[in-house]
Design a protein around this nucleic acid. Structure first.
Ligand SMILES: [Zn+2]
Ligand SMILES: [Zn+2]
Ligand SMILES: [Zn+2]
Ligand SMILES: [Zn+2]
Lengths: 154, 154
DNA sequence: ATTGCAATGTTATAACATAACATATATTAT
DNA sequence: ATAATATATGTTATGTTATAACATTGCAAT
């Protein structure tokens, strides 16, 4: 599979899904949280907090500050709508929220597009490794950087 | 296996191994680079760049600046002697440098001790996932946070 | 000696993230 | 409806992590 960006309909579905989840779970999807989520998912590449901040400022045409964005990100991460890629200090939308707690990523260094790669077999393997070490997992970061098909062919 | 810290002899061996590798590969293991490596490996927990900087200042009893430490870290990472844990912006020594390009980690949130967990089966599984996605890996971050045996029993 | 190169020193600043407290808005209880 | 409470946002300041840019040093090759 090449790492193409998401279609408009996929984006809409993703946004709608989050709205529904928030509604049914009584989570306050406030205007800012929604704006931040939309900015993140519409960007088909990982986006940085201060880039989000710039966009928020433009949208609302008024000053906004880092805590506003970081708080919204925290909410979105806590509820599984967004992930942080620690290796590049950037944020990405989750395209199957609530399907599982964590997602694993392929990140193309050239075109910056990312893709979730949450195999069950990979998850199992990580789980077995933890068990083998008597370790209780609370969260896992798996970020695979390299080149996607398109970029490695160029 | 519980996540006990390294013994003095293990530390010495680790330092000696790096010296040998540098000698045989004509890598300039300068005084600062050596100091930084020793600080990192002797700390049995992941250590932050500015903590290293403090220690360097104390050791040499003169002002030092962030670039000094970051350059040494870069050298050590490039040569596989040290790893960065992106999820906690910290650095750890590698206890089997050159054995493989990358290491995977278990990080205890409670006691902060870490452990490498570089199963071949895990590596294979990650590799297969990449192949399945037509993705060419250049580097992988796998950081499993949670609780070690000792800490989960307390 | 002069040049070239690798490493380090130094100053400044960029990039990423949070503390602390004030204000506003929404929910709930009375 | 009003007050009390909790939740969310605004605002200022600062903390933390990392690098750019340029000067200086030490050493080796010609
Ligand atoms: Zn996801
Ligand atoms: Zn690509
Ligand atoms: Zn290692
Ligand atoms: Zn522990």
């Amino acid at each position: 599979m090449s790492m193409k960006s998401k279609s408009t309909s996929e984006l809409k579905a993703s946004i709608h899904r989050v709205e529904e989840i928030c509604k049914s779970n009584k989570l306050g999807l406030t205007e800012i949280r929604k704006q931040v989520f939309e900015i993140i998912v519409k960007n088909n590449k990982p986006i940085k907090a201060y880039e989000i901040l710039d966009k928020i400022r433009n949208i609302n045409n008024k000053p906004s500050h880092p805590p506003t964005v970081y708080r919204a990100i925290d909410f979105l991460i806590e509820n599984g709508f967004v992930h942080k890629l620690n290796s590049i200090n950037s944020f990405v939308g989750c395209f199957h929220p609530k399907a599982h707690k964590e997602c694993y990523f392929l990140i193309c260094k050239k075109c910056n597009i990312y893709q979730e790669c949450c195999d069950d077999s990979l998850k199992d393997r990580i789980s077995k490794t933890a068990i083998h070490n008597n370790f209780v997992i609370s969260n896992t970061t798996l970020e695979i950087e390299g080149h996607c098909l398109d970029c490695s062919q160029k």
